[in-house]
């Protein structure tokens, strides 16, 4: 038994040490101030708040979609956050996509259908560059997973616009305390009351940011709710299996040990 504890001890200590080093690495080396926040989807039982994600879609659609694409998400996926089939159809139909070439080889536009991906604000990357001073606004489908700090980073970023200190050089950028380097090309997108929520929620800046993050956390990890509930069941099963195997093991080894 002594041996057993020793193994667990060494295993965990090295695991924790290495992880501490790694997280140290990812957080290090920037003058960015990130406020650690708690979101509905944090923790073992945390799930995406679907009502909040639906409001977040509205924020994305009315504010962000002008510049940012969402290329890995399809309209049909919106059913996952509680929209009905009809609502999704109606939402999709306000956008236009290129149709298949017709019998004369002409390409016309058609309204989008649920199986289409979210329509990008740009035809291609070069157009995106040309419209934004040479910087392509990043696609938002995976953005929560694609930045160190994740959701907390975006919360801090969206709230992080401040008056620049006098000595700071801002060429074509805006001062933001959460952005690495503190000069960001994106102007402050949310001020509060930027949208009028369909469900009547008051659109304070805080509310809009949290809702948008709920939505983007969902676009980045649409499997999150399933993953956590399945994970819990799998974990319980494995704990049970480990226990019975341990008892079996002790029984079998009794003959050898005595």
């Amino acid at each position: 038994m002594k041996n057993y504890y020793q193994i667990i001890k060494i295993f965990f200590i090295s695991f924790i040490l290495i992880n501490a080093f790694l997280s140290n690495v990812f957080a290090a080396g920037s003058d960015a101030k990130i406020t650690k926040m708690n979101f509905s989807f944090d923790g073992i039982f945390g799930v995406i708040d679907k009502a909040s994600a639906r409001r977040g879609l509205q924020v994305y659609n009315e504010i962000c979609a002008g510049c940012h694409s969402l290329e890995h998400v399809s309209y049909r996926n919106l059913i996952d956050i509680g929209f009905s089939n009809e609502q999704v159809k109606e939402f999709a139909s306000q956008f236009e996509v290129m149709a298949e070439p017709d019998s004369d080889g002409e390409i016309s536009m058609r309204p989008a259908i649920p199986s289409d991906r979210f329509v990008s604000p740009y035809q291609n990357d070069n157009q995106a560059k040309a419209m934004n001073n040479g910087a392509i606004p990043p696609d938002l489908s995976l953005i929560i997973k694609a930045r160190a700090g994740g959701a907390s980073y975006f919360y801090s970023l969206l709230k992080g616009y401040e008056e620049a200190p006098e000595d700071k050089e801002l060429s074509n950028g805006y001062y933001n305390i959460a952005y690495p380097g503190n000069v960001i090309a994106m102007p402050q997108p949310l001020y509060g009351d930027d949208v009028e929520y369909l469900d009547g929620t008051e659109a304070s800046m805080e509310q809009e940011i949290v809702d948008l993050i709920s939505f983007l956390a969902w676009t980045a990890q649409p499997e999150l709710n399933d993953r956590k509930s399945m994970g819990f069941r799998v974990f319980l099963f494995l704990v049970f299996m480990t226990t019975v195997l341990f008892i079996s093991y002790r029984k079998i080894w009794k003959k050898i040990k005595s």
Partner: peptide, 29 residues
């Protein structure tokens, strides 16, 4: 206890097998 162990392991293997089979079914898109 050995039978319990055996059944548990067999259940675990079967449960792990299902995602591997289901992944070949038509995907959401």
């Amino acid at each position: 206890i050995h039978i319990t162990s055996g059944v548990t392991v067999a259940t675990g293997i079967a449960a792990a097998g299902w995602p591997l089979i289901d992944q070949m079914n038509p995907s959401a898109d």
